[in-house]
Design a protein around this nucleic acid. Structure first.
Length: 548
RNA sequence: AGCCCCGUGGUGUAGUGGUUAGCAUAGGAGACUCUGGAUCUCUUGACAGCAGUUCAAAUCUGCUCGGGGCUACCA
């Protein structure tokens, strides 16, 4: 039970509302990111918990920055996340006429006026936190004159920026938002849904409460930065005397090793530091989807992050934990080698091949089995062999016996070196251990993944690492966050995988045993498989190495 | 500086006058294991400070300190 649900409970108990209705109100000027997922799960989750309604509403009041591309992407992301808005998809721009009528209403009541100040003057007249503002000359005009001017603004008689409609509140208010905020600006810019119907557009503070009111929203949930706007939200609704929803603010979250603002994400895209909004390194919903994250993992993450009002920085490790937990249960396993080292099984006949019967997912008996070919020449992972193994290294080394997963126990009998680099391993199998167990019960300390050379499927694998080299790229004064971009955030390698991998389709997720979770990238074409590494498995050995 | 908000283990969060201050994650130790994965067990670690109210304070009050937000014709 978080503080928002407590407030909702209270409102229901006191009769302030007799139902619950929330909304998620994105501006279509960028792609959704993981922070939006949290907002969605608060909004939608509360609607679900209280059997209320949930709207997806585009807050499309600024045609200069918004576009249909973003609308489409956002709808797709919200659907994919699993927030079911049914037919409740709305647009603030559909309410422009009603908003305009209400604005005229305020003008008539003497609560709003047309201001002729330039934007620089408006800013100057506003004063600052220590100094009260000065009143605009427009304040003195009669309602009739203001009404005439406002109608002519709408009619397109004045150039962009020449006038605004402002609320008449208090130029000395300690809350800067109450110092006669601008309600409408003149903008001769076509709107992506309204075309050139309008040349005055409403500002957020004026529009948002009206949108909520029109839709019958009960709880208008938003982030902390709007706390100081609540008095204004309430003021407009009170002046109009219309249905009055309750705004409640919660803290958004930051995550280590990434950035979360639309502006910065746009900067990364436009500066070509990433390939696109859906680059798998991006914290965008589309990027995470492409990387292999699941809606369930993201939802679980949002649940664990919680809802509160304090500044917070979430360890990206938490997100990784959530996706591992989900994928561990649901992903079929395959074997693939990212850095191949050839192995010749000397006592295995040339040209002979066998098929090993393998469980697809040990966590899910229903996932079935498959057959994996085994032959004389194999690939194993290069770092699964050491010529001179340190203590605690349990994998292959000269004379040592290990298990090839689901196949045989093998012993390393020798290796070949060229220019100081190991190029080939020689091993022998114990034929009695077919399947992986020794009849005499002897144990080995390690199990390796492998791929039959002759049957191997080639794929391009994109290995992702954190986008930034520091936990908080925006927290270094005087430095641009892009200075901390990780030059190694993307590494592309070729991998050798077992044949079953050739049958996968874009979007399919799976585990490469011992390596991590991967998914098939949409760049995959006939004859070219492209895989993304979602996240590595927990790696105890890497930790031991790190300590040494 | 004016207004607003927030301070609980490393991180995130629960707690609503009486709790051995809970949970998750991360860290440590061990068990088990055909993934050094998963699973299981144990474990380190927190109420920003100072006063006050009270039999009793993380919880109520005041002050101090610390952090964040606000001064767009963006949202």
């Amino acid at each position: 039970m978080d503080f928002i649900r407590e407030a909702v409970d209270e409102d229901l108990r006191t009769g302030r509302f007799d139902r619950v209705h929330t909304r998620f109100p994105p501006e279509p000027n960028g792609y959704l990111h993981i922070g939006h997922a949290k907002a969605i799960w608060i909004d939608y989750g509360i609607a679900l918990d209280y059997r209320g309604k949930f709207n997806l509403r585009f807050d499309d009041t600024n045609p200069a920055k918004e576009g249909q591309e973003y609308v489409d992407a956002i709808v797709e992301d919200v659907r994919w996340l699993g927030a079911d808005f049914g037919g409740r998809l709305f647009y603030a721009s559909d309410y422009f006429e009603q908003m305009y009528l209400w604005a005229e209403d305020l003008v008539r009541k003497g609560k709003a006026y047309v201001c002729d100040l330039t934007s620089e003057q408006v800013s100057e007249y506003r004063g600052n936190v220590n100094k009260p503002g000065r009143e605009s000359p427009g304040r003195l005009r009669s309602p009739e004159e203001n009404l005439d001017l406002f109608r002519r603004m709408r009619a397109g008689e004045f150039p962009d920026g020449s006038r605004t409609l402002r609320a008449k509140i208090d130029m000395a208010h300690p809350n800067m938002n109450m110092r006669d905020p601008v309600m409408y600006r003149i903008l001769h810019t076509p709107h992506h849904r309204q075309g050139d119907k309008w040349c005055v557009y409403p500002m957020y503070d004026w529009a948002h409460g009206l949108e909520d009111s029109i839709e019958g929203v009960t709880h208008s949930l938003c982030s902390l930065e709007y706390e100081n706007h609540r008095p204004l939200y309430d003021w407009f609704l009170d002046q109009l005397g219309i249905y009055h929803p309750r705004q409640i603010e919660f803290a958004r979250f930051n995550m280590t090793y990434t950035v979360m603002s639309k502006r910065m994400l746009l900067d990364l895209v436009e500066g070509r530091h990433v390939k696109s909004w859906d680059d798998p390194r991006m914290p965008t919903i589309s990027g995470m989807r492409r990387r292999g994250y699941t809606p369930a993992a993201i939802k679980d993450f949002c649940r664990r992050v919680g809802v509160a009002k304090s500044y917070n920085m979430i360890d990206v490790g938490m997100l990784e934990h959530c996706v591992r937990e989900d994928l561990n249960r649901t992903s079929p396993r395959y074997m693939g080698v990212l850095d191949p080292l050839k192995v010749v099984i000397e006592n295995f006949p040339e040209g002979h091949e066998e098929f090993m019967d393998v469980v697809n997912n040990p966590e899910d008996p229903g996932a079935g089995r498959r057959r994996v070919p085994f032959s004389r020449e194999l690939y194993v992972e290069r770092d699964d062999f050491m010529e001179e193994p340190p203590k605690k290294f349990f994998r292959l080394a000269p004379g040592r016996e290990v298990r090839l997963r689901n196949a045989y126990l093998v012993t390393c009998t020798g290796f070949e070196k060229k220019d100081g680099k190991i190029v080939e391993l020689k091993c022998k199998v114990d034929p009695a251990t077919r399947g992986g167990d020794a009849p005499d019960g002897r144990k080995v300390k390690s199990t390796l993944h492998w791929v039959s050379a002759k049957h191997a499927v080639h794929a391009e694998v994109r290995l992702y690492d954190r986008l930034f080299t520091v936990e908080d790229p925006t927290g270094h004064e005087g430095k641009d966050f892009k200075e901390f971009l990780n030059p190694d955030s993307l590494k592309v390698v070729r991998c050798m995988a077992e044949p079953a991998v050739a049958g996968l389709k874009p979007g399919d997720r799976f585990q490469f045993e011992r390596l991590g979770y991967f998914c098939v990238d949409p760049d995959t074409m006939p004859g070219k498989i492209v895989l993304n590494r979602t996240v590595e498995l927990r790696d105890t050995w890497a930790r031991i190495q790190g300590k040494q």
